[in-house]
Design a protein around this nucleic acid. Structure first.
Lengths: 165, 165
DNA sequence: TGACTCATGTCAGTATTCTGACATAGTCTT
DNA sequence: AAGACTATGTCAGAATACTGACATGAGTCA
């Protein structure tokens, strides 16, 4: 059974999902007291690094559909964490920005998440961390290389970004 | 901004999520033609390797809540892929098993998923794959070590397993 | 210029998963 | 043996994300 099927304990795919799941769980645990979900945090962090990003761009960066990001942004806007111009400066793109309140909330969340990442990497030295980055990038690159649908065309075509494995 | 916040492109956490997301997308792409979702597949694969698993054990293995697994199993049972005894042989645990039809479906799905995993690892040699396993296990271990809630007590306590990061 | 293709924003409906809660069956402790 | 603790199965409601669809700008190319 282990030879014919995918041997889960040694499958890199399974380990990837396991690690990703553990990370999300840990992040949820530290973000919950701050009244923030992982997706909220991801969105704010992306905006901090690249102010003026569009809703669709945010969706790609957070690995959700642009429809999901759309409703999330409505929440964050009501929340007062982000602002969006009523009319598009050019084209249809509505550049989104953090408000001071959003930056404030992000600061606390970002610190908590950094602590989680530090704990995650606690058993590794610098060289191993670098190697982990390199290997993960290789996996992503290989998965997207051939016969892998373009992640940008997630819409009206059928290749969502859920996360799992 | 990059020093203060979490620098996404170099964050191992972000790369982990990126890789996991890419893997799930790729798996969905190959499983869709087989009429199967990633969670369905995970469940069947677990059952193939450990027949007689309980619903809760399956949930842990697939990184979802036991409630989600419960509804999933109802689908798979109607589907004719798995069977569950009406009464518990001992205690409350209802051991679940694959039907011949389930095994058949799993065979096709498992082959497709193995191909995806092969593609994912295509750029790496054997030593690098082993290193990837080791590093991923280290991340999981470190995340669960301290101040990380027991994943078994996901219920009535507040630490779900969603996947993201 | 006009047709084509692509990306974005948005609305509506569906599906999946989660949170909360409760009863019950083993297990461990005293 | 009784009580406490843990784990399981299950039901119901809520939150979240996704699929499908449509209109609108922008860029490309003949």
């Amino acid at each position: 059974m282990s030879q014919d099927g995918v041997d889960l304990p040694t499958s890199v795919g399974y380990l990837l999902k396991e690690a990703s799941s553990a990370l999300r769980t840990a992040m949820e645990a530290v973000l919950r007291p701050l009244g923030m979900t992982v997706t909220h945090y991801s969105c704010l962090e992306l905006l901090a690094q690249r102010p003026g990003l569009s809703s669709s761009a945010l969706a790609r960066g957070a690995f959700v559909t642009r429809q999901s990001m759309h409703v999330l942004l409505q929440t964050l806007e009501q929340d007062g964490s982000v602002t969006r111009p009523a009319t598009a400066p050019t084209g249809k793109v509505l550049p989104i920005r953090l408000t001071p309140l959003g930056e404030e909330r992000l600061a606390a969340a970002s610190a908590a998440v950094r602590a989680v990442e530090r704990r995650m990497l606690g058993e590794l030295d610098e060289a191993e961390v670098a190697e982990a980055r390199r290997l993960l990038r290789s996996l992503v690159h290989a998965l997207r290389s051939e016969s892998a649908p373009d992640p940008d065309q997630r819409d009206d075509e059928g290749t969502p970004a859920n996360v799992a494995g």
